[in-house]
Write a protein that binds this DNA or RNA. Structure first.
Lengths: 347, 347
DNA sequence: TTGTACGCGTTATCAT
DNA sequence: ATGATAACGCGTACAA
């Protein structure tokens, strides 16, 4: 009795496999009595239908996948929640898969579409610079959420904030406070994703305020070592401090980086925001509870999540065309930033 | 050409399906020339083998599953990393699945075992109070990591810290600092999992120090609303403050709760640790970077992860019996706790 | 080295 | 209402 199959159940019940199948799947062309008997036997036997066989046979399932690159990113936590809920509300099942940094999410998507007979895909995170040929093979609707894509973008939809613009806004805000030496903590120089866009926004804001770009103020992640987390923000700020260059504000391209930065400043005896302002990006919950609470550019995760799912379903069920939806971020000013005080110049 | 199957490839290549199969699976009994040709055609065609069909045929795969309840729990992040790595090193693939709070992880495991021909399961988190009958149907080895289980526990192994004991240690430490009014932030009273054990440790420590238990000092999560996160710690501490009862230390049963608590105290003008000490549990990275950095009872996540995986494989490959492995936690004293100063008594 | 044919567990189609 | 049987796409024993 190692492996129980539908045949075993059929034999025990004295019916055919098709009748068992009907009982399980809630078909109507079966008598109440036999159905109940069968379900009873199933419950007692510990039989679990084999999904492989099911999916192999089924023509299409009510299911979509949510593929997340960089699942450890705290920022995704809430957005995943929202999306799962939205998907469930539409009575679809949601297959959530984390994809490794080195993995190719489109290849994975291709497999899943075949395997699970998926109706749509949501990609969360990643750079998404896939060749057109790969994307063209993806025959179901897909939406790219929160992340950017370089090459024009063919068939898929996209939902996100305008990272370059929002980044500009944040740096502009810091400039407007009177800061002129604004350091930035950002992704490795070879980053082709949001990291690059946020960096571009920073540079453009400096230009707009006629501040010259100073390499001494730019701290990049070391690829392979740093990522968007506390420890990296801490290390990068230490590095900045060692350069012995003057700065009165730090713009960190994520809230986690920003909080790590605050700690490093604290240890160096630099008070936030009195001696140095610190600003982040994302609008993480943690920043709200930190001391000092963190000024940030919050992404509307709820709206992004809902819009992503609703676009996907418009395309699945109503065959609408794909769209590029851009949401506004919100500049949330909290305790970690303040106006530049020339008194501080005594450094 | 909607769906490409192995037959299409065979037809295009002018060979039989078995030859294509051999080419894909790297069998040796095939000429280099035909193999290369076939692989070439596959690459061009965008063919993706159907895993359902594969798993249906395969007798057993080199795969185990990692089922996580409460994936949003920051604490699991690192341990998942460790486990995935350990599993990969053994050349097994790791199927990572989050399980909803309301879902039954054992049922899910049962499905997966059949579906993916799994060789073993790791359960992370959850209360795991499953009836014996369910567990007995689980024929592959499984290990319960980081969480507790009430009813004796039949076939599975377990790896964790002794939550009750470590909790005792932390509260004992606070007592040793001279604190006599120690508040606790903990899970809902009906919790049957680690929440209850940590609470028990707290109570036992009070007893050991001949301090009486005071309901005024106990703040429980509101079920459905609170969980182990910043916001809950914040809310619960606000609640505590409203009670207008005196306390000189807060023991939060998770680091996230502790950090939320710090913020609430800060807003009430209570300085940490000068006016009130705060201690957490888990050893999260965030606590290290907070200001003040957080005193905590760190769980050895690396060791727990490694021991979990290695036990699982001892049982899969060497048919060893299941074990209960208990690791020591580490009391990490940082800035958020200090000795009780009677001066403060001016409250 | 290659091809033929069967079976994995299930659902769907057609009879009955 | 129920049963027999053909797929679903692939791996593999066996034959060639």
């Amino acid at each position: 009795m190692q492996i129980v199959t539908i045949k075993d159940i059929a034999r025990v019940c004295g019916v055919s496999v098709s009748t068992v199948s009907r009982a399980m799947n809630g078909h109507s062309d079966i008598s109440r009595k036999t159905r109940e008997h069968i379900l009873q036997v199933i419950a007692e036997s510990g039989y679990v239908p084999n999904n492989n066989a099911r999916n192999l046979k089924r023509l299409e399932a009510r299911a979509v996948a949510l593929l997340v690159k960089g699942m450890d990113n705290t920022f995704f936590q809430k957005i995943i929640d929202v999306m799962e809920k939205e998907i469930r509300e539409r009575r679809y099942s949601c297959i959530l898969q984390r994809v490794e940094e080195s993995e190719d999410e489109v290849e994975l998507a291709l497999e899943l579409v075949r395997e699970k007979k998926l109706r749509g895909i949501i990609f969360l995170g990643g750079k998404f610079d896939h060749p057109k040929e790969s994307l063209e093979r993806l025959t179901v609707p897909y939406v790219l959420s929160t992340s950017e894509c370089r090459n024009g973008f063919s068939g898929g939809g996209r939902v996100s904030v305008d990272n370059e613009k929002e980044s500009f806004r944040m740096v502009e805000y810091l400039c407007s406070l009177g800061h002129r030496r604004i350091a930035i903590l950002t992704a490795a120089p070879d980053d082709e994703s949001i990291g690059r866009l946020r960096f571009d926004g920073y540079r453009r804001a400096l230009e707009a305020y006629q501040l010259s770009q100073d390499p001494q103020l730019e701290v990049f992640m070391e690829s392979g070592r740093d990522k968007y987390d506390f420890a990296s923000g801490y290390r990068m700020t230490k590095k900045l401090l060692q350069r012995n260059t003057e700065f009165t504000a730090i713009y960190a391209t994520s809230d986690t980086l920003a909080l790590g930065a605050c700690r490093a400043l604290h240890e160096a005896g630099i008070r936030v925001p009195r001696d140095c302002s610190v600003a982040g990006f994302d609008g993480l919950e943690a920043g709200k509870y930190y001391i000092p609470s963190l000024t940030t550019l919050a992404q509307p995760v709820g709206e992004i999540g809902r819009a992503t799912v609703s676009q996907l379903f418009r395309r699945i069920e109503k065959r609408k065309n794909s769209e590029q939806i851009i949401f506004e971020g919100e500049l949330i000013v909290r305790e970690s930033t303040s106006a530049y005080q020339s008194i501080k110049k005594g450094v």
